[in-house]
Design a protein around this nucleic acid. Structure first.
Length: 302
DNA sequence: AACGGAGTCAACCGCATTAAA
DNA sequence: ATTTAATGCGGTTGACTCCGT
């Protein structure tokens, strides 16, 4: 206890009610600022950062402490996360009585649940419907070949040209795009520089995926195996039946459940290409696939 | 009753940004 | 204009509780 009054001592860990009182008193007198002065005045052996955090997350008035996120709050978080990414403070600002920490905790436990759901039922991803995507081929050099793209307005991609892929999909829900949904409006600067063009797709037909902690977007289970009560926002997006034999396209033994689980453990599914352990992130799904994988897609669309 | 897995929550850390000197 | 301190934010961790076996 005497330690608390030693010079240079900084207390960490849980806050006592006495400390809370001191902090509240300070805020009452001086407002929610000058956090560092709490320590320099010898009021508490806590850093300014620690004091601010305690205030923001626990002592601030009108906080909804101890009550779970309502269904409405959940859908707001899901929607805003899709929109802004992991900008928890920004998202929390739209929810009365919730802190960025609350939102962050909500999201990460939701994500953990999602990852566990997948890990519990090892299952391969699924291939695109064979009758889909005939308008484009994904080539084995990270390029797409546009054979026919539906017209929307005056924008129409030239047919029988190849375009490089640098980015496809979006962060939250993504995969196995129905390529006929592409329009020129999704291509930016396509006339300018074919080497740097960004391909951005808003797929109408999607398969839910999750982003592992490594940032890798990974397809989820066929809907028959998914518990959509946990991920309601995914349910609407699944419009097509899945082909659960997708993995047959890859070498069976390397993609066994066992290996699949290992991939999850290592956070980096290599899809049977063990030597290739490049890192990847959610913004470059196809780009960071080993190029060999694209050979399989050629078959599908022909 | 003991144990382990899952879920929740509070608080820390490092880095980025902003404000003050 | 530069440096330093304070603040803000996102990622992570560990303690705790709950629940099923």
């Amino acid at each position: 206890m005497e330690r608390e009054f030693e010079k240079g001592y900084i207390k960490k860990g849980p806050w006592s009610s006495e400390e809370d009182e001191v902090l509240l008193e300070h805020v009452k007198k001086y407002g929610s600022r000058d956090w560092s002065s709490i320590r320099s005045k010898g009021l508490l052996p806590r850093t300014g950062k620690s004091c601010r955090l305690r205030w923001v997350n626990k002592l601030r008035p009108n906080l909804k402490t101890g009550c779970k996120f309502s269904a409405e709050e959940e859908s707001v978080v899901i929607e805003l996360q899709k929109q802004f990414g992991n900008k928890w403070a920004k998202i929390a600002a739209c929810l009365e009585g919730r802190t960025d920490n609350d939102v962050k905790n909500f999201w990460s436990s939701r994500r953990k649940r999602l990852e566990r759901t997948l890990a519990r039922t090892p299952s391969p991803p699924f291939k695109q419907q064979k009758n889909k995507g005939k308008d484009m081929l994904i080539l084995n050099n990270n390029q797409v070949k546009v054979e026919k793209v539906p017209e929307r307005g005056s924008n129409k991609l030239e047919e029988n040209l190849t375009y490089p892929i640098s980015y496809m999909g979006n962060k939250e829900v993504f995969n196995m795009i129905n390529l006929s949904d592409l329009t020129k409006s999704n291509y930016q600067n396509i006339e300018n520089d074919l080497n740097t063009v960004e391909v951005e797709v808003t797929p109408l037909h999607t398969v839910p995926s999750f982003e592992s902690s490594s940032g890798y977007n990974f397809p989820l289970l066929p809907e028959s195996q998914m518990d959509f009560s946990l991920f309601p926002e995914c349910q609407n997006l699944v419009q097509e039946p899945f082909d659960s034999n997708f993995m047959d396209m890859f070498e069976q033994e390397k993609c066994s459940d066992c290996v699949w689980s290992q991939k999850l453990e290592t956070k980096l599914p290599t899809l049977g290409l063990e030597g290739n352990s490049q890192s990847t992130n959610s913004n470059c799904f196809f780009k960071d696939f080993p190029t060999e994988i694209f050979e399989y897609f050629e078959d599908i669309s022909t």
